[in-house]
Design a protein around this nucleic acid. Structure first.
Lengths: 335, 335
DNA sequence: TTGTAGGCGTTATCAT
DNA sequence: ATGATAACGCCTACAA
């Protein structure tokens, strides 16, 4: 059985409140008493109970992290684990714990998160994605519960968020291809209900526009993140009788599949089709050809999001803030 | 402000205990009252406070997950995220939450975990590694705190654990190389204070023995997990004037570096040096040559560990159990 | 079937 | 500088 504050108090011949003050290192307790009480705490192996503390303080020193269903696939993708590391690093630095919620399906997800929030398990949340019409997002916003989005909110939603400039990043990547003389640039992107997909598509379009090239919808494929879907997307473009000379892919897993589809069609990268992708997985440089990719700095996204959360926890009616984490286009052999 | 059980009670004209019983769906409450109370709960948007519940129940419905420092590097490695998914899947199924602890350094780590445990934040723990003389392990064991090790405990420590048969897996892989006619098989392994490293080394040795080949210590390199270290390990073997015709690597990240070192030395894989690695990262099949690797089924390791934890939570004085998750040697071009 | 009262371990307020 | 007391929100004997 664990020692409680009362037992410490009894053994030290003081009252529980005195012990409590010693724990808080209150200046209103004599050094003498402090050392005496501390000695007893050691002897008894006493450690304050976090639950009881949370109950009276109405705060748990814990932040929640929401990972979307698609993260299951993408856990292979370094984005989520790296973001998690960033979150954890910031939380640790503030003496906070991290409650992780990886949910199974849409329905459960919503319930799970709502439980965590309504049950008072966490003081704030980090959402590791941003999509249109998201129930969890709406719930959090409607509750006025403190949270930070990793990703950009839908227009008009004024909330705390941390994101890359995905429009810029995609524009930069597409421009690189265009300036290499590529004219027919396909795009393979994730689901279009994700804000990140929309942003990157917008960036792609703006690059075309800046280079005086017309946008053609038939060059675009939107699919769920997986290697298989990357493969199929390229296949489908070829089947439509289109042969692009470049392709912008919004995720390296998709790119892996796409590369294989291109090879299987007897075409060469980058000679026939140049490729740039996103996320810069650790093996990108070891592929043949090595894969050009945009590093989005997921650790920083997680870290800064958490820092922002603490800031808003400290000042409940602070205005929503945004932080933009720079991206880095890493050119390798694939373009 | 959130509604409490008292407010529900008042509005429903019943006592708090009745509401409590409705929450627990006690059979001693009439259906009539139940529906009445439930209606009020809905109206008030009532949700039981998990903290208060935890305090009186002395249990938090939360399990902790400990990720070691080296996981930082290895988060690029699918092992940890996949294991996390498995843990989360099992925890969700049991209505439990997951508290994640990724710690910075050894010292902090110990303190962090000890806090979590002693503060009563979690009902049990999953340790995602196993090494010799580990402080956290000893602390947990000495506290008699319920936990499950993913990995094998040091001999003599009777604790719950879930692991692969790493001796067998390494033996199988080494034997494969030997049966392909390779005679001088090097081994690049992780730190030798990790039980997994020792086991795989033992498996390698036993394969040699079974094939009547003498063990030579100069063929072995033990390094921290990283691509750079994989590169250096091969370099160091070459520098010693040794040219192996096969190499067994205990992690794909190490293998990536090793492959490059071999290529840079002007040698070919598998012609000059055949290679088998561990962990089967998603890109293994996309490398050139594609990398043979042992899939250790990290999801299952996490899932089964958590199931085992729940079992031991249910029966505090059950005897320690072990579960072995099968491995799968996946042969590709590198051997 | 339902209500009352005490307590889970802590902190905060008000005394002393 | 320290102690008594009352919460925090819930559960659970024990009573009725």
């Amino acid at each position: 059985m664990k020692a409680t504050i009362k037992e410490v108090a009894k053994k030290a011949n003081v009252s529980p409140s005195t012990v409590s003050r010693v724990i808080a290192d209150s200046p209103r307790i004599s050094e003498e008493t402090k050392t005496k009480v501390r000695k007893v705490m050691k002897e008894l192996g006493y450690h304050p109970n976090a639950i009881a503390r949370s109950l009276v303080n109405r705060s748990t020193n814990t932040i929640g992290v929401i990972m979307p269903k698609s993260a299951h696939l993408s856990l292979a993708n370094p984005f989520f684990p790296e973001a998690l590391r960033g979150i954890s690093a910031s939380a640790n630095a503030h003496g906070f714990y991290v409650l992780l919620s990886i949910e199974e399906d849409e329905h459960e997800k919503h319930n799970g998160i709502e439980n965590i929030v309504r049950a008072g398990m966490v003081d704030g949340m980090i959402m590791l994605y941003s999509k249109l019409e998201d129930k969890t997002f709406n719930m959090l916003r409607d509750c006025q519960f403190p949270f930070v989005l990793v990703g950009k909110p839908v227009k008009g939603n004024r909330v705390n968020y941390v994101d890359n400039d995905n429009v810029y990043a995609a524009c930069e990547a597409a421009s690189y291809l265009l300036e290499k003389g590529r004219k027919n640039i396909a795009m393979i992107t994730g689901p279009l209900d994700l804000v990140v997909s929309l942003d990157r598509l917008a960036g792609y379009k703006s690059a075309l526009e800046a280079h005086g090239i017309a946008y053609r919808g038939e060059l675009i494929r939107s699919v769920e993140f997986s290697r298989e879907n990357g493969y199929k997307a390229i296949e489908s473009i070829f089947k439509d009788g289109i042969q692009p000379d470049g392709v912008l892919v919004t995720d390296d897993l998709l790119a892996l599949g796409a590369m294989n589809a291109i090879k299987d069609a007897g075409l060469k990268i980058p000679e026939d089709i140049a490729m740039i992708s996103f996320n810069n997985i650790p093996t990108a440089e070891f592929l043949t050809p090595s894969l050009s990719s945009v590093d989005i700095h997921p650790f920083d996204l997680g870290y800064e999001a958490t820092e922002l959360l603490f800031k808003s926890l400290g000042n409940k009616n602070a205005l929503p803030q945004a932080r933009i984490i720079p991206t880095q286009l890493i050119i390798r052999q694939s373009c």
